[in-house]
Design a protein around this nucleic acid. Sequence first.
DNA 1: ACCCAGGGTTGGC
DNA 2: GCCAACCCTGGG
Length: 311
Amino acid sequence: MIIKAPVDLNLTQNSGQTSQPPWKLESNVYSDVVVVDNNAVLFQVKQEGNNLKFDFVGDISNKEATNKIKTIFDLDFNLNKFYKYLNNQPELADMTNFCRDLRLFLAKDKFECVISSICSANNSIVRWTKSIDDIKKSWGNKFTYLGKDYFTFPDVSDLKNVYCDDLEELKCCSNLNNPNECINNLKSCGVGYRAPYMKKASEIFTLEMDLEDISKMSYDEAFDTILKVPGVGPKVADCILLYGFNFRQAFPSDVWIKRIVSYLYFDGNEVNVSKIREFGMEEFGDYAGYVQLYLFHYARMSGLMKKLKGK
DNA sequence: ACCCAGGGTTGGC
DNA sequence: GCCAACCCTGGG
């Protein structure tokens, strides 16, 4: 099937958005298993010029499959209109030259997005994506298509039963004798001190909080709610709301966004992160999420980031 | 070998 | 409210 919508698939997949790690790549085709209405569906996605071409294997209709791909890759978003907006802002006009056809890469699994976002905090992209892939391999459901293995992200109730580290695992499993035999714990996936956050988050989403409820909330209510989850501060909360729940008015603000926005809008005078967040939401409205995404990549690719490093 | 930073968050003052 | 510490990996 073909969807007529420009998208730079490589850029979108590798831009470090915390909805999920990049999909499995083989000869320009990105593939992964997505659960759609309790059906596991294999999607194979490929960019062809200004179109996104995809195939799928699974028990859903063509229309459902198309809608799912449109949602994940945000294909209904009008890029031309967004670029017109950017080109009318002197501070932002240059961005379109560096991030053309970059789109949001939205969650295929809200819980995966929560854990990925927690994992990304104070971490490098290569490391958090590898951790999430390890978690999928360890506790997700396995599907084999054409001789290749795919893993879904484990659901809330499965992750809550995983141990944090090998000591805890050793203590609880009488059949284990030494730490080398321990593999059923989060730290073995390289998540470090975030392991207890992830486990507590799983418990919270089993017992107290329903991910589906958050979709129904206002942005402010959702932000305050998700902030209560351990390992979730303001930056991670906005990532979860943007990539996981499609709150496009979120403006995830971290040190880099702070440096970039201070440079572009405050004459280089450093404004604190929380003010930057308020400024971004006020200034960019429903484009805030996209502007944040573009600012980061613009800075990375234009050399602005190097210039601002250390400030 | 050593040191440092990484798209933050937490807990202690 | 501020600030050091936090796990772990890769690069100087």
